[in-house]
Amino acid sequence: MHNFAFHKPGSVADAAKAIGAASDGKIIAGGQTLLPTLRQRLAEPSDLVDLGAIADLKGIKAEGDGVTIGAMTTHAEVASSSVVAGAIPALAHLASHIGDRQVRHRGTIGGSLANNDPAADYPSAVLGLGATVRTNKREIKADDFFQGMFTTALDEGEIITAVHFPKPEKAGYEKFVQPASRFALVGVFVAKTKGGVRVAVTGAGQEGVFRAKEVEAALGANFSADAAKGAKVSADSLNSDLHGSAVYRAHLVSVLAGRAVAAAK
């Protein structure tokens, strides 16, 4: 790992200043993806701006008809939160299955979303629930936030501060893990909301997380596991690799959507 200048600001405003002043700075949240990336020298930032000392970015609270989670809240905290379990149990379930125990103690929701790994779990919950990503500049709707693999609507140096999840009528998340890496080969988040059924898929798409419109249509007509399993998902823009073909992944989307509906609470 190349060396860098390290900054640990105490406020979001100071963090924005530090990242703005750096020639090629990176923001570090939990660092569970960024540090391995730096160690492989896949990135060589001039500066790292650590958000770990900013108290405003941590914590979970009930807000309106839903839950707001601070960007620096860890996966373990979301998994064990009674507020999350009460409002959106599927979200607590999802958080409790990210990475492994040690990773969940460091990794954060803000870091996961800003990174937008195509096989990460959180993007499917944010898109599936129609959440709102709050930053130091604005609010971004989930449908506008994810813009392809490792790409988001965030501007250079823009900092996620929190995510607001509206409470669905019911939601479920199921993933099929790649046996070695434990990343989602396919993960499906299903939410029955007042505005209709939303189905978000991670792990399968060439462009990262996406909504499975075929499954949404089937579940909109009949919210049942059988309806989800019967929905035909196109393999056209899905990943194909040694772990599974696009056709296999397309099949998994329907199967997992069915399981997510069966498990939905």
Binding site: K8, I28, G31, D50, R106
Partner: peptide, 16 residues
């Protein structure tokens, strides 16, 4: 253990 919780010490900076 960092503040009582298991973490991978190869995946966290000392300065953090």
């Amino acid at each position: 253990h960092v503040n009582g919780k298991a973490v991978k010490s190869c995946n966290v900076l000392a300065v953090q």
